[in-house]
Design a binder for these strands. Structure first.
Length: 908
RNA sequence: GCGCGAUUAGCUCAGGGGUAGAGCACAUGCUUCACACGCAUGGGGUCGUUGGUUCAAAUCCAACAUCGCGCACCA
C-alpha cells in the first residue's frame, strides 16, 4: 500500500490530471438556472497575446481561492474568463513581426490585409495565457471565455458609442492631446507616464524688435520647438519686463516678429521669468496662446520629425537631433547664453516607451457619464474597496476628471461607428467640431452605414481599448446570465488600473445596467523584485511563472504567493541565482516558493503515513467512539474547529495571507509536530485495537476536513489526497463537496474538551522542558534518558507512555520516592517536579554556568514584574486578568529561582 | 507641491496598548520505521528618530528622516 505513494510529492502529472477531471465533471460551470445563492467574478482580461506574469499569478490565485471557497460554501459560482484585444500592444507586436519577417509596414499591406494578419496572430498566440491560467488551476467557467473583439461584444462597444453620441457625451474636436510618435496615435492622459529625465536647460536671447541691442533672455528645455514659437510671455506683475509687454520679440529662425504678452501662468521665479510660447507643442503654451490670440505653428510631423515649417535646415530631422542642431545654430548666431544641466519630468508613452508629444489633433472625446453616482457609490461603500484607502485615490481622480480621448489612430480595435457621406467626408473630417446640425444628413452614427454603405466612408479611427473593457462585467453576459450573476460579487485587480478600468466600469455599469457592476473590489499588491523594482520584461527580473510551476508545482506557487502577499503594500519576490556547480550555467531558486513546495511535501507525507496504517475508516463514527477519545484527540479536534472558525473570519476579511499562515501553522505545528507524534504509539502493533481505531477515526476526520479547508489554496494536491485516502468514495470530487455544517466536536461536552486541551498542553509543555534539558547536556533527541517524575496531578501517570515517546525517554519513573543525588538537574513541569539523573555523563562546570545564567535571567524578569506590581497605578488601573497574570508569573518565578538555587547548591 | 503607504531578527514578512513572532539563513545534535522538501534544541531584535497621550507605547497621536507609490507640475 505504502509502495503506491512515492516518498516525495511530484506535482506535475497530478496537477494536469485533476484539472482535466474537474473540467470533465463540469465542476467549473456556473449554472444560471441554479437555486443556490450566486457568486460571480469576471476576470480582469489579460492581453490576448500576453504571457503569464507573477502579477497574474497573484491576482488569479486570489480569484480562484474566492471561487473555490464560495463553492464549498454552497454557492453557485461563475468565474468568467476572457482576454482583451489590447489595441496598441497587440498591433505593435504584429507590426514588429511584419517588419522582421517581411520587411513591410502596415501601410504596405493596407488596412484589410493587416487586420487579417492581426487576426492570424491572435489565433496563433491568443491561447497561450489561457492555457497558462489553466496550468495554475484556475476554476473559471471556461465555456464562457470571451474576447473583447468577439462579434457580440464588438457590437455592444459600438452601440455604446452610438448611445453616448446621441446623449451628447461624445464629441469630436481639435484638442491638445498626448501623441505617441512611435505608435502614431493619440493617447489618454492615463497612458502617459511621467519620468524624471536628465536634460539641459538652454538660456537663449531673443532680440526686441525696434529696440536695437535689447534682448530678452529665455530659458527652455526644448530649443527644437523655437521654430514654432509664436509669442513670448512674462508675468504681468514682473517689474523687470512690464515695459516690454505689447512689443514684439524676434524669433531668430525662421526669422519673425512675435508678440510679447503677459500671462498669470508664468512663474517669475523660474529661469529668467520669460517663456517662449509654442502653442502647437505644449499644453500650457496652447492655453496661453488661446487666451492671447497667438498663432499656432505646428512644426512637427506625426512621427516626431520636423516638417517644412521648421525651415529647410530642420525639415525631416528627428526631434532630438533637432534639439542639438537648434542649440548649435543659436550658438552660432551668438544667441545662446549658457546651458545648464537640468532634471525635469517628461511624459512617456506607457506602451511604446518614447516621450510623448503634445499635439493638436482632431479626436473623439467622451464626457464621463454618471460621475456623481459613481463617486457616491464608493464613498458610501455601496461598492466596497479593499484596502479601503484606495477609495480616497478613486475619489480624488473622480473629482479632477478630464474628458477622455477615446479615438486611436490604429487599425486593431473597434472601429468608430461613424460614417461620412463621400462628397462631404473631407470637409467633415477636417471640421473644427462636428455635430448633427452642421453636418446634416452627411453624417451618420450607427453600426451599419446607410444605403448599404454605397457613397459613405467610415471614420478611420478605432476606439481606445479601455472603451471596450469598461463594459466587461455585463457585456460578457447574456440576459439570463446577468439575471443570475450580475452585479458580480468580487473584482480582484491591481491598483495600477484603478482609473483605466475600475472607475470606468463603475460608470458604465450605472449607465447601462442601472446597477453597480460589482459589490467588492479587492486591490492586490504589486510584486517587485529583491531591489524593490517593478517586475518587467525589459529588466529581466521577472521569473517565468511557468518555470516555477514546472519546478515547484502550481500549488506550491499559489500557496507561496498567498503567504507573501500582504494586503496593502508591495511585496518582494526573491529569486536567488546560484552558480551551477558543473556547468557554467546559473541555477536559480526561490526560497519563498520552496516553502510552499516543502509544505505540499509535508502534507503528502503525513497522508502517506496515514495510508500505512491501513484503509480508511468511516469518519462519521466520531460521535460513536467519542467516549474513547484521548486528550490528544480532543485537543487536535478542538484546534481543527478553531482553524475552521478562524478561516471563516479571515475569508470574510479577504485576509489571504492570514488564512494561508493559519493553514500552514495548524498542519505543520499543531497536527504533525504535536498530535501525530503523541499518538504514534497508538498505531503500534501492540496497541489496543479500540484505541487504535479511535485514533484512526480522528486522523481521518482531521485530514478530510483539513483537505477541504486547504483546497482553495492548494487545489490539486488536496484533491489528489482526498481521493488517495478514500474520502472520495460516494462523495465525488473534493471541490464539489460542501463544507461540513457543524464543528467536528459538536455534541461533545465543552468542559471535557477544555480539560483535555489543558492536559495535552501540559504534556507538551513538559515535553518541551525535557527536550530542552537534554539538548542542554548535548544529549541527542533520540537518546534514551531516564526521568523521574513526582506527579502533582493525579492523571499524569496515565500519560507516561506518550510523554516517554515525545521526550525520547527510555523510562519515566513516577513511582515516587526518588531521592536525587547532588547535582541532578531538576525542573518544574506542569505535571510535577522532574529529574534527569546524569550518571556522570555531564560536565559539572558547564551545568553550573547554565544554571547561573538561568538564575540571572529569572531574577531580572522577577525584578521587572515586581516593579510593575508595586506600581499602585498598575494594580488599580490595569485589567484584572493582566494583574493576575503577572502575580502568577511572579510566584512561578520565585519558585523557579529557589529551585535553581537549590540545584546550584547541590552541584557544589 | 499635495496625497497615500512602508520602516519589527542577517533576508522576506506577520503581529499589535499589558513578558517581541513565522519562514529562510545561522549554530549544535539527530540515517527516531511519514517526510533531510525532514526532526529536535538554540543564538539573534533598546520594533526608523524625537516628542505627546496613558498606570503602561513596538502598538495610538504629532513632527521629522529615509524608501516607495499616486496626482499635479516651472518653460
Amino acid at each position: 500500500m505504502s509502495a503506491e505513494i512515492p516518498k516525495a510529492y511530484e506535482p506535475g502529472a497530478v496537477e494536469d490530471k485533476w484539472f482535466n477531471r474537474w473540467v470533465e465533471a463540469g465542476a467549473f460551470r456556473g449554472d444560471e438556472s441554479s437555486d443556490r445563492p450566486p457568486y460571480s467574478i469576471v476576470i480582469p482580461p489579460p492581453n490576448v497575446t500576453g504571457v503569464l506574469t507573477l502579477g497574474h499569478v497573484l491576482n488569479n490565485t486570489m480569484q480562484d481561492i474566492l471561487a473555490r471557497r464560495a463553492r464549498a460554501e454552497g454557492k453557485e459560482v461563475m468565474w468568467l474568463p476572457g482576454t482583451d484585444h489590447a489595441g496598441i500592444a497587440t498591433q505593435s507586436k504584429v507590426e514588429r513581426h511584419l517588419r522582421e519577417s517581411e520587411g513591410k509596414t502596415r501601410r504596405d499591406l493596407g488596412r484589410e490585409e493587416f487586420l487579417k494578419r492581426a487576426w492570424d496572430w491572435k489565433e496563433k498566440h491568443g491561447g497561450i495565457i489561457i492555457r497558462q491560467l489553466k496550468k495554475l488551476g484556475c476554476s473559471c467557467d471556461w465555456d464562457r471565455e470571451r474576447f473583447t473583439m468577439d462579434e457580440g461584444y464588438s457590437r455592444q462597444v459600438q452601440e455604446c458609442f452610438v448611445h453616448f453620441f446621441n446623449s451628447g457625451h461624445i464629441y469630436r474636436g481639435k484638442r491638445m492631446v498626448n501623441w505617441c510618435p512611435a505608435s502614431l496615435t493619440a493617447l489618454s492622459d492615463e497612458e502617459v507616464i511621467m519620468k524624471p529625465q536628465r536634460g539641459k536647460l538652454y538660456y537663449m536671447r531673443y532680440e526686441i524688435a525696434g529696440e536695437d541691442g535689447e534682448y530678452l533672455e529665455i530659458a527652455t528645455t526644448r530649443p527644437e520647438t523655437l521654430m514654432g514659437d509664436s509669442g513670448v510671455a512674462v508675468n504681468p506683475k514682473d517689474e523687470r519686463y512690464g515695459h516690454l509687454v505689447g512689443k514684439n520679440a524676434v524669433r531668430p529662425f525662421p526669422r519673425a516678429e512675435i508678440p510679447i504678452v503677459a500671462d498669470e501662468h508664468i512663474d517669475p521665479e523660474f529661469g529668467t521669468g520669460v517663456l517662449k510660447v509654442t502653442p502647437a507643442h505644449d499644453k500650457a503654451d496652447f492655453e496661453i496662446g488661446q487666451k492671447n490670440g497667438i498663432e499656432v505653428i505646428d512644426i512637427l510631423n506625426p512621427d516626431g520629425t520636423l516638417n517644412a515649417l521648421a525651415g529647410e535646415d530642420f525639415a525631416g530631422m528627428d526631434r532630438f537631433e533637432a534639439r542639438e542642431k537648434a542649440a548649435e545654430k543659436l550658438d552660432g548666431m551668438g544667441l545662446l547664453v549658457r546651458v545648464e544641466d537640468y532634471e525635469n519630468n517628461v511624459g512617456f508613452s506607457e506602451r511604446a516607451g518614447v516621450p510623448i508629444e503634445p499635439r493638436i489633433s482632431m479626436q473623439w472625446f467622451l464626457r464621463y457619464p454618471k460621475l456623481e453616482e459613481s463617486t457616491r457609490a464608493v464613498a458610501e461603500r455601496e461598492i466596497k474597496f479593499r484596502p479601503e484607502r484606495w477609495a480616497k485615490t478613486y475619489a480624488h481622480w473622480m473629482e479632477n476628471i478630464q474628458d477622455w480621448c477615446i479615438s486611436r489612430q490604429l487599425w486593431w480595435g473597434h472601429r468608430i461607428p461613424v460614417w461620412y457621406r463621400e462628397d462631404r467626408a473631407e470637409e467633415l473630417r477636417g471640421a473644427e467640431s462636428l455635430d448633427r446640425e452642421t453636418a446634416g444628413d452627411a453624417l451618420y452614427v450607427g453600426l451599419e452605414p446607410p444605403d448599404g454603405g454605397a457613397g459613405w466612408v467610415q471614420d478611420e479611427d478605432v476606439l481606445d481599448t479601455w472603451f471596450s473593457s469598461w463594459l466587461w462585467p455585463f457585456a460578457t453576459m447574456d440576459e439570463a446570465t446577468r439575471g443570475k450573476f450580475y452585479p458580480t460579487t468580487d473584482l480582484v485587480t491591481g491598483p495600477d488600473i484603478i482609473f483605466f478600468w475600475v472607475a470606468r466600469m463603475i460608470m458604465a455599469g450605472y449607465e447601462f445596467t442601472g446597477e453597480k457592476p460589482f459589490a467588492n473590489v479587492f486591490f492586490t499588491s504589486i510584486i517587485r523584485d529583491k531591489q524593490g523594482r517593478k517586475m518587467s520584461k525589459s529588466l529581466g527580473n521577472s521569473p517565468d511563472p511557468l518555470d516555477l510551476i514546472a519546478k515547484y508545482g502550481a500549488d506550491a506557487l499559489r500557496f507561496s504567493v498567498m503567504r507573501i502577499a500582504p494586503t496593502g503594500t508591495d511585496v518582494r519576490f526573491i529569486e536567488e541565482k546560484k552558480r551551477d556547480k558543473k556547468g557554467g550555467g546559473e541555477e536559480s531558486s526561490c526560497p519563498q516558493v520552496e516553502e510552499g513546495r516543502n509544505f505540499a511535501n509535508k502534507l503528502w507525507n503525513a497522508c502517506r503515513f496515514r495510508q500505512m496504517q491501513g484503509g480508511t475508516v468511516d469518519s462519521d463514527q466520531l460521535s460513536v467512539i467519542s467516549g474513547r477519545l484521548s486528550i490528544y484527540d480532543l485537543d487536535i479536534l478542538a484546534k481543527l474547529d478553531a482553524l475552521a472558525a478562524d478561516l471563516v473570519r479571515s475569508f470574510e476579511a479577504y485576509k489571504f495571507q492570514e488564512s494561508a499562515s493559519r493553514l500552514y501553522d495548524f498542519f505543520w505545528n499543531e497536527f504533525c509536530d504535536w498530535y501525530l507524534e503523541s499518538i504514534k504509539s497508538h498505531f503500534r502493533d501492540d496497541a489496543e485495537p479500540a484505541r487504535r481505531e479511535a485514533a484512526l477515526v480522528v486522523f481521518d476526520t482531521v485530514l478530510s476536513r483539513y483537505l477541504q479547508l486547504l483546497h482553495p489554496f492548494m487545489p490539486h494536491i488536496s484533491e489528489e489526497l482526498w481521493e488517495k485516502l478514500g474520502f472520495a468514495e460516494g462523495g465525488g470530487l473534493l471541490m464539489q463537496t460542501p463544507l461540513p455544517g457543524a464543528p467536528a466536536l459538536e455534541g461533545v461536552d465543552p468542559g471535557r474538551v477544555a480539560e483535555a486541551a489543558s492536559r495535552a498542553s501540559a504534556v507538551f509543555e513538559t515535553t518541551r522542558l525535557a527536550r530542552h534539558l537534554k539538548a542542554q547536556y548535548n544529549l541527542a533527541a533520540n537518546r534514551n534518558v531516564k526521568f523521574h517524575l513526582e506527579p502533582e496531578v493525579g492523571w499524569a501517570t496515565e500519560e507516561l507512555d506518550t510523554l516517554k515517546l515525545l521526550c525520547g525517554a527510555g523510562e519515566i519513573d513516577a513511582s515516587g520516592g526518588y531521592l536525587p543525588t547532588a547535582g541532578t538537574p531538576t525542573f518544574l513541569t506542569p505535571l510535577g517536579k522532574m529529574y534527569m539523573p546524569l550518571e556522570g555523563l555531564v560536565d559539572v562546570e558547564a551545568e553550573r554556568e547554565r544554571i547561573g545564567k538561568e538564575i540571572a535571567k529569572a531574577e531580572k524578569d522577577l525584578k521587572q514584574i515586581a516593579g510593575k506590581l508595586a506600581n499602585a497605578n498598575f494594580t488599580e488601573r490595569a485589567p484584572k486578568e493582566v494583574v493576575e497574570e503577572n502575580r502568577e508569573r511572579r510566584e512561578a518565578l520565585k519558585v523557579r529561582v529557589e529551585q535553581l538555587g537549590e540545584m546550584l547548591a547541590n552541584l557544589s
